[in-house]
Design a protein around this nucleic acid. Structure first.
Lengths: 179, 179
DNA sequence: GTCTATATAAAGATAGAC
DNA sequence: GTCTATCTTTATATAGAC
């Protein structure tokens, strides 16, 4: 793993653990055993680290959204989007939880703002055409469940597969609308 | 409104808008038209402002939880806890959304940690005895819906009453368990 | 590619005048 | 109760040596 990558890994760890604004470049550098100046060689600014962090995940989510937008707005499409999104998130659970739990701090940052837009488009895919308020709320609940559901992992003794399945199960109930 | 109160109001505004770590005492003071030193007369530290902010809401939530814990663990109790919690939250929507969207930043702070515990106990009230994972996830989704649901307020043209009713409706569906 | 050294700005916090 | 003034620490960021 090269230095650039190590910076991103440790940065995500610290951002997720203590918050974006609460984490300094000095701390990131210290964890890796390099100096602040070395960090600045790899990233132009602190925000730039965040950009790098969200880039890959953002592109993958965009692909899912783009696919969903070409499909008919049926329950089957919503379910398939949810399945794809849940699978994508699982690989980047730490990033998503960080995003979910740091929304305010990221609001003023480019990468954060772009993510908010993404979530808006994803939300649209999770409701039918001309949705009422309850339907929108269920779509929002589905997204939040997929983002934050993994935080129950610690207190519930089960396998990661079981965890992923159940999160998807609950999310699907929600995108399927009122019972 | 006395100065102490004005500090709390503006602080909450800034914390909710830009994040806790991203907001400085200087900014808070400037908004009110006093100096940083004046803020320190009213609050011992920055964390102390947050404590003051969460105190009232925290006590009210504790009362709801305490009541819920004396009741039998039935669906009716869960529903009544949800109703009381939703009503309480509505008055302090800004605080709750701030808490929801700044979890990471607040993790390292006393008042934040206490709130996490509170949410844990509330979560327990939102599931039946011996809940499976799906039930726990629905309970979590119910809490998140009540906390973050109001963020759809801007994009959905309706009354606050309608908003509150629908949020509660979706939350109740979730605490009522599998259809 | 990483370092030392430094610039510059801002943070949280305190002492003491008014 | 609010101020000026100041301390101390830390922050982001850059210049230039190795």
């Amino acid at each position: 793993m090269d230095t650039r990558e190590r910076i991103m890994v440790e940065a995500l760890d610290l951002f997720a653990e203590r918050g974006y604004g609460e984490t300094s470049l000095r701390e990131i550098a210290e964890r890796i055993g390099i100096t602040k100046a070395a960090v600045y060689y790899h990233f132009k600014t602190k925000d730039d680290i965040l950009n790098g962090l969200l880039d890959t995940m953002g592109q993958q989510i965009d692909e899912i959204i783009a696919w969903g937008q070409t499909q008919p707005r049926t329950a089957e499409t919503r379910q398939e989007v949810a399945r794809r999104y849940a699978a994508r998130i699982r690989e980047g659970a730490k990033v998503m939880r960080f995003l979910h739990e740091n929304q305010t701090a990221l609001r003023g940052i480019d990468a954060g703002a772009r993510f908010r837009e993404r979530m808006g488009r994803l939300h649209d895919l999770f409701v039918g055409p001309d949705p009422d308020l309850a339907e929108r709320l269920r779509g929002l609940a589905a997204i939040m469940t997929m983002h934050a559901g993994w935080m129950l992992r610690e207190e519930h003794a089960t396998s990661d597969d079981q965890m992923a399945d159940t999160i998807l199960e609950v999310a699907l109930e929600l995108v399927n609308g009122k019972p």
